[in-house]
Amino acid sequence: MRLSNQLTGIINFITLVLSIPIIGVGIWLASKHNTDCVRFLQWPVIIIGIFIFAVSLAGFLGSCFRVAWLLWLYLLVMFLLIVLLLGFTVFAFVVTNRGAGHALAGKGYKEYRLGDYSTWLQKRVQNSNNWGKIQSCLSDGEVCSSLSKYTSLYSFNSANLSPVQSGCCKPPTACGYVFQNATIWVSPVSPYADSDCRLWSNDQTQLCFSCNSCKAGVLYNIKHDWRIVAAVNIVVFVLLIVIYSIGCAAFRNARREGYYGTDYDKGYDPRTY
């Protein structure tokens, strides 16, 4: 068996094996959890796992048994995947080129504004269906519960809050709410200073989860994560190009065998007769 066939077979066998636990995790999420947060994640996990399994199986069988049509299908999907990956990487850099926290005098944390982000990202979180799922994740994750350790205004102002905690767990500073504890604030001095001032609630299941500042904090995390994913995608893109090239060589081998049979490997070439 030619080296390209062997390499293609080994690579796809590894990804075939790795896809099984991915599918298993998706099924486990579907069977064990019922919250909107987990439902938001389970089907993408299952679909990705099945996709990797199917593509890897086609590549493995096609390379090991030199089935030309399976390898052709495998290469077609790989080509589409490379194009999609490149497109997503460029798109990710474009839509995350805006958005940053605003430092406040005397505060250890920053505040975030929804208008600072790209229009495309803003529309995603302003969609009530999308935001409802994200709110479920925030509630299930109890992102504000750790703030209970800040028992004084001084300690709270000195805290290094995460973007989500800053946007979702307290009212905007401009509102002038009076600190009672980390998640109880009363009597806003300027209730119209920000549209979020009227959305704040001392209900621990609500807080500022409906605020634009909360959406902005979530978008900051998304921006940060997408930047990391885009950087990783560049590495994956290069690896896929290498794997695709090896797969092309394996496809040529399988097609030659289909034309000339096993004697071709023994040095017999009908084209010379």
Rank of each mutant, 00 (worst) to 15 (best):
V25Y: 12
I27G: 05
N12W: 11
N34Q: 14
N12C: 06
N12K: 00
I27A: 12
S31N: 10
S19Q: 05
T35V: 03
T8Y: 03
I11F: 15
L16R: 08
G26N: 04
A30V: 12
T8F: 06
L29T: 07
T35G: 10
L18K: 09
F13C: 11
L16K: 06
I11Y: 15
F13L: 04
I22M: 11
I11H: 13
V17W: 07
S19C: 05
D36A: 15
S19N: 09
I27W: 00
S19G: 06
V25A: 14
L29F: 09
I11P: 11
R39F: 10
T8R: 08
G24S: 05
I11R: 01
K32Y: 10
I22C: 10
V38W: 08
I22A: 04
D36Y: 09
P21I: 01
G9Q: 07
N34L: 01
T15Q: 00
L29H: 13
L18T: 01
H33L: 11
W28F: 14
I14P: 05
G9F: 15
R39N: 10
I20L: 11
I10N: 08
P21Y: 07
V38G: 04
I22T: 01
G24P: 02
P21S: 14
G9N: 07
I23A: 10
T15H: 01
I27P: 03
L29E: 07
I14T: 10
V17H: 00
I11Q: 07
T15K: 01
I10F: 14
T15E: 02
L18W: 07
L16E: 02
V17P: 04
N12E: 01
L18H: 06
I27V: 10
I10A: 10
W28V: 00
F13N: 02
F13M: 07
G9V: 08
V17G: 06
I23L: 09
N34D: 09
I23C: 15
G26P: 02
G9E: 11
I20A: 07
K32N: 15
I27L: 08
I27T: 04
G9A: 05
A30Y: 13
N12I: 05
T35P: 10
G26K: 08
N12R: 03
N34K: 13
A30W: 12
G26E: 04
P21W: 07
T35S: 08
A30F: 15
I23N: 05
S31F: 09
T35H: 00
R39K: 15
I10H: 05
S19Y: 03
G26T: 06
L16T: 03
D36F: 12
H33M: 10
V17A: 08
T8K: 06
V38K: 11
N34C: 00
T8H: 02
S31K: 08
S31Y: 09
W28R: 13
T8V: 05
F13K: 01
I27Y: 05
N34E: 12
R39D: 13
P21A: 12
I10M: 15
L29Q: 11
H33F: 15
D36P: 15
V25N: 00
L16W: 13
T8L: 09
K32R: 13
L29V: 09
T35C: 00
S19P: 02
T15N: 04
I22R: 03
L18F: 12
L16M: 02
R39A: 08
I23T: 06
